[in-house]
Design a protein around this nucleic acid. Structure first.
Length: 456
RNA sequence: GUCCGAGUAGUUCAGCUGGUUAGAACGCCUGACUGUGGCUCAGGAGGUCGUGGGUUCAAAUCCCAUCUCGGACCCCA
């Protein structure tokens, strides 16, 4: 008679109150920055027509789509769980050519990938993305704004210095294309080439050489790649890197377009007051998704390479046009909420908040005091203090132990003495962190609890 | 998709080369404390040792299969 095991599907998980409380706080902080930059909320369905998603992410991405066959064999009715939030955005925008441009939206929703989960890396099959995108603006300010916002958010969350310091890496698809050609490869090999190059942080220059050898780049090609990689370095300012790279490609249209794009973005970033020291122009950065056409960026924690990128994005000027209308330029980034949260947990940046939002637990000494307790509960709630009555009167040990376990800061007891106090209803308010307890009028107790709640 | 490692109380694990009733810590419940948590102390509940098969007088322990979980690749948030 054993029922099914109460487990979640591989790579998915429940979020307990103890996890949701800091998680919601994190989401609020991210949203606040999004709104500050003028992005408005959008939501789209979890399910998309398969035809909308297929072929947008590259070979790997297509394999990772969760496909559903809800009417057998009818291909036109096939649907899939969304893989990211960018492609759904492109669909929405393509469906509304009348919308005023630029269109700036943020979107915080789960996405699904049929991946092999790896918890320590903050990698799941169901995870939340927080996307911000600007549609209808050419390369430049819009991209700079996305990056400025990214840095501002990272700093606000505490990824500013020491081993928590996050770096935003920046590159450009056109430049990558030029580098590929420079190494003697046809443009068609760009995907293989970039994939190999992108691993440089993980497997080092030697490893990259091995990979490149496999696609036929050796000797001279490697030397020409070296010149490009040497122009960047951990302590070289991004604009300096841009100058050096430009000098390596005189008259090359792709490289010039790429470098020009990057320089425009960097100048705008500087004008926006963003710290350029947090930007690293990395000619090896590739990013996997097919739809990027211009600048690409991602955030890494140099001190914690195993965690993977915290954010990732780029410009995709040709994606929206795939839905039949005109091309509309667009750029944006994704904040990986779960990866961010995993990083914050591993770096001790998440304060354990306890498993409840309740701040005051009312306890009745006996059933006679329950009405007085309910009266008090109402008073706390009217003052904005989250509060509840322990449902069983008597045995004060129970509510106290309960409050202790859930980290509720205050217990308010009402017994015969408090209920029949000559100066009106009193409560005995105990601060569980200090153990201090005093019997005061209800209004005074509410005031004290309110002050404590506001200051935390 | 490829390659490793692990599955024993609610949780984290111990249990050596097979040998009586399978243990610890933490957690949980009760009491010491008939108006009060955390600390201490005394009790208590809780396990078909992932599942199926095999070897053996005897299997948590050895072998095979299977499922699940974790890690490294690949890729990505």
């Amino acid at each position: 008679m054993a029922g099914p095991k109460p487990r979640t599907f591989k790579g998915t998980r429940d979020f307990t109150p103890a996890e949701m409380i800091p998680r919601e706080r994190l989401i609020e902080r991210i949203k606040r920055v999004f709104r500050l930059y003028g992005f408005s909320p959008l939501e789209t369905p979890a399910l998309e027509m398969l035809s909308v998603l297929a072929g947008k992410y590259g070979e790997e991405g297509d394999k990772l789509l969760y496909k559903l066959d809800y009417k057998n064999d009818d291909f036109s009715s096939r649907v899939a769980l969304r893989y990211d939030l960018t492609v759904p955005l492109a669909r929405v925008v393509a469906a509304h050519p009348e919308w005023p441009m630029p269109f700036k939206r943020y979107q915080i929703q789960p996405v699904w990938r049929a991946d092999r989960p790896q918890i320590r890396q903050g990698r799941f099959r169901e995870f939340y993305q927080c996307d911000v995108d600007t549609v209808g603006a050419e390369e430049g300010l819009a991209d700079a704004e996305i990056l400025a916002l990214t840095i501002e958010m990272l700093d606000e969350l505490g990824f500013e210095s020491g081993d928590r310091r996050a770096i935003v890496q920046l590159n450009h698809r056109r430049l990558l294309e030029a580098v590929c050609v420079r190494c003697g490869q046809p443009r068609e090999r760009l995907a293989d080439f970039s994939r190999a190059l992108d691993k440089i942080d993980k497997i080092g220059r030697e490893g990259v050489n091995d990979e490149l050898a496999r696609i036929g780049i050796t000797g001279d090609g490697l030397a020409r790649l070296d010149e490009v990689l040497e122009s960047a370095g951990p302590n070289v300012a991004p604009l300096e890197v841009a100058d050096r790279v430009r000098a390596l490609f005189p008259g090359d249209p792709a490289a010039t377009a790429g470098v020009d794009g990057l320089v425009t973005i960097l100048r705008a970033l500087d004008d926006l007051g963003a710290p350029l020291a947090r930007i690293s122009l990395n000619p090896a950065l590739a990013r996997g998704l097919d739809y990027y056409t211009g600048a690409v960026f991602e955030t890494v924690l140099p001190a914690h390479p195993h965690i993977g990128s915290l954010t990732g994005g780029g410009r995709y000027d040709e994606l929206i046009g795939l839905y039949g209308g005109a091309d509309v330029p667009a750029t944006g980034t994704t904040i990986g909420l779960d990866r961010m949260f995993a990083a914050m947990e591993q770096l001790g940046m998440v304060a354990s908040a306890g498993a409840t939002v309740t701040r005051v637990l009312l306890a009745a000494y006996s059933d006679e005091q329950v009405p007085a307790c309910l009266h008090a509960v109402r008073a706390f709630r009217e003052a904005g203090v989250p509060c509840e009555l322990f449902p069983k009167a008597g045995k004060l040990k129970k509510p106290f132990a309960h409050a202790d376990k859930l980290n509720i800061p205050f217990v308010a007891v009402i017994g015969p003495d408090e209920a029949t106090h000559p100066d009106g209803l009193h409560v005995s308010l105990k601060d569980l962190s200090t153990g201090a307890q005093e019997t005061v009028a209800l209004a005074a107790a509410v005031k004290r609890a309110r002050e404590a709640v506001l200051s935390s």
